[in-house]
């Protein structure tokens, strides 16, 4: 497969129902994202990787309205740039994740709204495929 995650251990892949991955501190139970070997809360070093799931609620948000400078990777120019949403999504596992949001319409984004994880093709990799990254989209309640 030529599509690959942009970084290891951010989310389960390949997977039919991908989940974000985080770290659980064996000493104090603190949850981190991305998983890190030492705990930013208690400085313990025995953490394990856990699944954080694929659902959360929007804690805060903004919209990126101008083309970022590097290190942002994109084929877009200032002329073709499309704004993207950015937010923190609160996960039931006990951590807030900063993420791109597929919605960039400020009228459609509200603090507290349910969100779902999506894995998106982000940029081209050097093997002819795409780098895959995580993002959140508004969860349409049926």
């Amino acid at each position: 497969m030529s599509d690959k995650p942009i970084h290891a251990n951010l989310f389960t892949w390949p997977a039919d129902n991908p989940s974000l991955l985080g770290g659980l501190c064996g000493h104090c139970g603190e949850v981190s994202f991305p998983a890190q070997s030492s705990c930013r809360h208690c400085s313990g070093t025995g953490s394990s990787v856990i699944e954080l799931g694929d659902r959360g609620t929007l804690w805060t948000w903004t919209v990126q309205n101008f083309l970022p400078k590097p290190p942002y990777v994109t084929d877009q120019t200032t002329a073709t740039f499309e704004p993207y949403g950015v937010g923190y999504v609160e996960m039931p596992a006990g951590v807030r994740i900063e993420s791109r949001l597929l919605t960039s319409d400020p009228e459609k984004l509200h603090i507290g709204m349910p969100m779902r994880l999506v894995i998106e093709r982000f940029s081209r990799n050097d093997q002819g495929g795409h780098n895959l990254s995580f993002a959140f989209d508004c969860l349409e309640v049926s």
């Binding site: 948000w61 903004t62 290190p71 942002y72 950015v86």
Partner: peptide, 21 residues
Amino acid sequence: DWYGEIGLMLTTQYFGMKIQR
């Protein structure tokens, strides 16, 4: 590096999100 590559390494976003909340 992935954090910057996907477009999250901007102080302006942080300020927007902080005051929004």
